[in-house]
């Protein structure tokens, strides 16, 4: 876990969510430090979107407590939404609305609303502001939603799998836009995504959600330092002091993924195995089971 004294932008304490007999989130704890990008990873159906909805005060957890920017997210949702920008997983803007109307609507609802900047952003990506949302391409729709989310100059930006359904070019454009904005504003970003390459480039803290619980929540660098892939020769056994996350046999021989506690990394650890990408770590932790449906 983060274990730092940084101010917290968002946190969850003992959050459980039941849908009938189905347990989606199980006594989950989470802390999003202020500043930087926090990435929440998880396979389909692990409860990422449910957690985002709870975090945004759109859904009340069965048990537990969530805070955004120091306020109870369920009780203070309307006030919090003046400080939080949201780009949802699937488009939620009414299909008949166009960007002009939405920007005008935002100017009536938000104390700070930068219409000019939003329009510039849309023009930069050739998104027509007078065409109804339902007639725009998926990439254009995402740009509209991002423009709306940023127009209020949020303290916290929540991006729920923003690249879902986008082609590689649109995805690249979206993340570049995001990086540019982050560089300018220093806003806290809470990001969920299946695009692990992009996450790896963007995030500073990463959490992996599995079966309703967080398996890891720590700075990305720490995570990557802890995990190693080790090739095993025939008959060779793992050091019992090093816990194996995964052992498998590939066409190239036997290998294991091991994870150390950062406080007790042996001297030889960095030389014993291969460094792993975030995607490899993610697969090693949660990739052995059949995917479920998104919740």
């Amino acid at each position: 876990m983060t274990g730092t004294n940084q101010p917290i932008a968002a946190c969850a304490k003992g959050v459980s969510v039941h849908y009938g007999a189905t347990l989606v989130l199980d006594a989950l704890d989470l802390q999003v430090p202020t500043g930087g990008v926090y990435g929440l990873l998880g396979r389909n159906g692990t409860g990422k979107s449910t957690l985002v909805r709870c975090l945004l005060g759109q859904e009340r957890p069965s048990r537990g407590h969530l805070e955004l920017l120091g306020l109870d997210s369920w009780r203070h949702r309307p006030a919090l939404m003046r400080r939080v920008g949201v780009v949802p997983e699937t488009p939620q803007v009414p299909p008949r609305a166009n960007a002009d109307e939405l920007l005008a609507m935002g100017s009536r609802l938000y104390p700070i609303w930068d219409v000019d900047e939003a329009k510039r952003r849309l023009r930069r990506f050739s998104v027509p502001s007078d065409v109804s949302f339902g007639r725009l391409s998926k990439g254009q729709q995402k740009q509209v939603e991002l423009a709306l989310a940023l127009a209020q100059r949020p303290e916290l930006l929540v991006l729920d799998d923003p690249s879902l359904g986008l082609d590689s070019v649109a995805r690249k454009v979206l993340y570049e836009e995001l990086l540019e904005h982050l560089a300018e504003s220093g806003v806290t970003v809470f990001l969920t995504s299946h695009d692990l390459d992009a996450v790896e480039r963007l995030v500073e803290t990463v959490a992996i959600l599995h079966r309703g619980k967080l398996l890891v929540e720590e700075p990305l660098e720490d995570l990557k330092r802890r995990f190693r892939r080790i090739s095993l020769r025939e008959g060779e056994a793992l050091d019992s002091a090093i816990p194996a996350v995964l052992q498998r046999t590939s066409p190239w021989g036997r290998e294991a993924v091991v994870a150390h506690n950062l406080q007790s990394i042996p001297e030889s650890f960095s030389h014993e195995g291969h460094a792993m990408s975030l995607e490899e770590i993610f697969e090693a932790l949660v990739g052995t089971e059949t995917a479920g449906g998104e919740s």
């Binding site: 945004l56 759109q58 309307p78 939404m81 949802p88 939620q92 938000y110």
Partner: peptide, 13 residues
């Protein structure tokens, strides 16, 4: 259809 977030993500009671 999960589209209520459009309103809930705005500062509306």
């Amino acid at each position: 259809e999960g589209r209520l977030g459009f309103y809930l993500a705005n500062p509306l009671t």
